[in-house]
């Protein structure tokens, strides 16, 4: 058992060092205006790590106050992560004013709905509630990322490799956390040491992806899009939809006729 704790501690040190590397690249390459959310998230994570390190030494690992501060500080981490993911959405779709206006409304509604559902379904028993809420919130992150890239694919928007790497980093971390928390929820006590190791390992993988992303050459600012006059959309889109509706109705009638003729 002590061996696993040692491994967990070593992995935490490694993750701490790698996070410092991300911060270094973000600051030295002046990328913080591009990825402010990522910088905030990694910084909050590092500060949370330092705080917990101090509390573990001061109050001990099994003290209930330590657990409460640990889970409480997680709220800040989650908020910073939401900011980082919002940045990914903006970097991917922000150039397209109309589509971005629609996307942020849809994605915000989806995120709010999922977060509220996660919190509401978590219940009021402290131990279970925190774990259930954590699973729900991580699952919300995963779903928002999937929805974002489905949206981008629908409009054939190609993501830059660094944006993909950032998103994949968050996706990997959140999806592994969902599984890890679910296993903890099922087995509880005996799984705690393993849970710590398996919480840090995917996070290290994610940080490696983020390091790769922030080391990519900074591209020139994309040229402004030639935006169409507002009237074009309002004139053409209802027309296209109408024709598609007519076609569907006719295909449906044909289908019904085939069914009746049998």
């Amino acid at each position: 058992m002590a061996g696993i704790y040692t491994w967990a501690l070593r992995l935490s040190y490694l993750s701490f060092a790698l996070q410092m590397v991300v911060i270094y690249y973000l600051l030295s390459r002046r990328l913080w205006p591009v990825y402010p959310g990522l910088l905030a998230y990694i910084s909050v994570n590092v500060l949370q790590g330092c705080l917990l390190f101090f509390l573990y030494r001061h109050w001990g690992y099994r003290d209930h106050r330590t657990a409460q501060v640990a889970w409480g500080s997680q709220i800040l981490c989650l908020l910073a992560r939401a900011w980082a993911i919002a940045d990914i959405c903006r970097l991917l779709l922000g150039r397209y004013r109309g589509v971005w206006g629609l996307a942020w409304r849809l994605l915000s509604a989806l995120a709010c709905g999922l977060v509220l559902y996660s919190l509401a379904s978590a219940g009021l028993v402290w131990n279970q509630a925190v774990l259930k809420a954590s699973i729900g919130l991580e699952l919300s992150t995963v779903m928002v990322l999937v929805a974002l890239f489905l949206f981008a694919r629908h409009y054939e928007i190609v993501a830059l490799p660094e944006i993909r790497a950032l998103a994949l980093g968050f996706f990997i971390y959140s999806s592994f956390t969902v599984l890890n928390d679910k296993i903890l929820q099922i087995w509880l006590g005996p799984y705690v040491p393993g849970w710590q190791v398996f919480a840090t390992l995917p996070f290290i993988g994610s940080i490696c992806l983020w390091i790769w992303a922030v080391r990519q050459p900074v591209g020139k600012t994309a040229p402004e899009l030639a935006v169409l006059p507002r009237d074009v959309y309002y004139a053409l889109t209802p027309e296209v939809n109408l024709r598609l509706r007519v076609l569907n109705e006719r295909l449906s009638r044909l289908w019904d006729r085939e069914e009746h003729s049998r």
Partner: peptide, 30 residues
């Protein structure tokens, strides 16, 4: 034609959610 409609939406300064969602639904149906 659908691609053209999406290109117009992409290059438009604003889009209407109802139109976009309806086209998406009709496309799947089609």
């Amino acid at each position: 034609l659908l691609r053209l409609a999406r290109a117009i939406a992409l290059l438009s300064p604003e889009v209407v959610a109802v139109h976009e969602l309806e086209r998406f639904r009709l496309t799947l149906q089609f």
